[in-house]
Structures are given as C-alpha cells and as structure tokens.
Simulated assay, not measured.
Amino acid sequence: MTTRVTLISPAAGDAQREVRFDDDAPLSDAGLRRVRAVAGDLPAADRTLVSPSVRCRRTAGELGISAETVTELAGCGMGDWRGRTLAEVAEADPTAVSDWLSDPGFAGHGGESLRELCDRVGRWLDGVAGVSGRVLAVVEPDVVRAAAVCALRVPPDAFWRMDVPPLTATELSGRDGRWNLALGWTPGRP
C-alpha cells in the first residue's frame, strides 16, 4: 500500500517580503495573481487538506481545492515573536535569534521549538502512511521543511538547510514507514 502526499506551499504574502513571523496576514496581490495562474494544474487527490492559516486557506481556495483544515499541519507556533519582523526581534534580543537558528530545541519565544514542530509533523506523516492513496495539502513552508526532515530521518538542525519557495510542491511517497522525497516542482510549469 503506497501513500502519496503532495505538499503545496502557499502563495506569497506580505509577511514573507517583510521577513515577519507569520501574523496570519493575507496573500499579496502578486501572490494572488500567481496562484490564480496555476489553478487547475494539480494532481487529483483522495484527500485534500490545508493548514489553518489565512494564507494557506486562501491559496487552497484560489487553487480550487475544497480542503479540510488540519491543526496538526499548522506552522510553527512562534509565541511572543508572532507578528514581529526578524529585524525587530534581532534588535531586541540577538542572542535569542542566534539560539533559535542554531538550536532546534529553542523555544525561548514562548512558542513551539523546531524539534516540536518536526515531531508533530512526523506524527501526522505516520498517521497518513497507514492509508493508501493521494493526499494533497496546502501547508506553510516550515511544515514542508519539517516533513522533509522526518521523511529523510535527518537531524532537526537540517531544517534550516532547505528553502521552500512560495507555490511549489514537494511530494512524499511511501509505505511501511519509509518515505521517498521529490522536491520543488512548480504547479503550472512542465
């Protein structure tokens, strides 16, 4: 029994341009244009899911996907940093930013550590691995990174070694607890 999971990162919003810890801001005008241009170019799926963020739900809607919101696929909880820019946080507490970037267990912002995010996404992957078919999910880029960390069974500090551009797809296929990873195809491009 093979499970295929296609993870689509959402279209760009102002939070990415501003390097802001997500504050549930909407998609940018450019992001909306781009997502509308690729609507209809996704594989069929047995189950369609979406992260609870405004950005992911709007991207799914613009793609024409009617999806179930799944809290386990939420982006990393950033606690006190939510809504602030990286520059603002770095100016206020450069040591905390350094610790966050170097220690997967860091949760000094009062939210979730990257290790906790990876564990949460890993449990979700374990759950979907037991059901054959195709899953399509629009999720935050950090969820895509966490899924790749889990699929490859690499240490959580590998999280920062992966870039996930807006509106790209990452596919996991697997069975018996082993995943293969296909990276970075873009909907609407051959």
Rank of each mutant, 00 (worst) to 15 (best):
R34A: 15
R34K: 04
V35L: 08
R36Q: 08
A37V: 04
V38N: 07
D41M: 00
P43N: 00
P43H: 05
P43W: 07
A44Q: 10
A45H: 03
R47T: 10
R47D: 06
R47Q: 08
R47H: 14
T48Q: 09
L49G: 11
V50K: 02
V50S: 13
V50P: 03
S51D: 11
S51T: 03
P52K: 07
P52V: 10
S53F: 04
C56G: 10
C56H: 06
C56A: 15
R57W: 14
A60M: 02
G61F: 04
G64K: 14
I65G: 05
S66C: 09
A67P: 00
A67E: 04
A67V: 06
E68T: 10
E68C: 09
V70F: 09
E72Q: 13
A74V: 06
A74I: 01
G75K: 08
C76V: 11
C76Y: 00
G77R: 14
G77C: 11
M78T: 11
M78W: 11
G79H: 03
G79R: 02
D80E: 15
W81S: 04
W81N: 00
W81R: 01
R82D: 06
R82P: 05
R82W: 06
G83V: 03
R84S: 13
T85N: 12
T85K: 14
T85G: 10
L86Q: 10
A87P: 03
A87F: 07
E88C: 06
V89I: 15
A90L: 09
A90R: 15
A90V: 04
E91G: 15
E91L: 11
D93Q: 08
D93T: 02
P94W: 01
P94A: 07
T95S: 14
A96H: 04
A96W: 03
A96Q: 10
V97F: 02
V97H: 01
S98W: 07
S98A: 15
D99R: 12
S102N: 01
D103Y: 04
D103G: 00
D103E: 04
P104T: 02
P104A: 02
P104F: 02
G105E: 13
A107E: 13
A107Q: 13
G108R: 01
H109R: 05
H109C: 11
E112G: 06
S113G: 07
L114K: 12
E116H: 05
E116K: 00
L117N: 11
L117V: 03
C118R: 02
D119H: 13
D119C: 12
R120H: 07
V121T: 03
V121L: 07
V121C: 04
G122L: 08
G122Q: 06
R123Q: 11
R123P: 01
W124G: 09
L125V: 00
D126S: 09
G127H: 10
V128E: 11
A129M: 15
A129P: 13
A129Y: 12
G130H: 14
G130Q: 15
S132V: 06
S132R: 14
S132P: 15
S132C: 05
R134A: 11
V135I: 15
V135P: 10
A137N: 02
V138F: 04
V138R: 01
V138S: 03
V139P: 11
P141I: 08
D142C: 14
V143T: 06
V143C: 09
V144R: 14
V144K: 14
V144P: 13
R145A: 00
R145V: 03
A146K: 00
A146W: 02
C150I: 01
C150G: 03
A151W: 06
A151L: 07
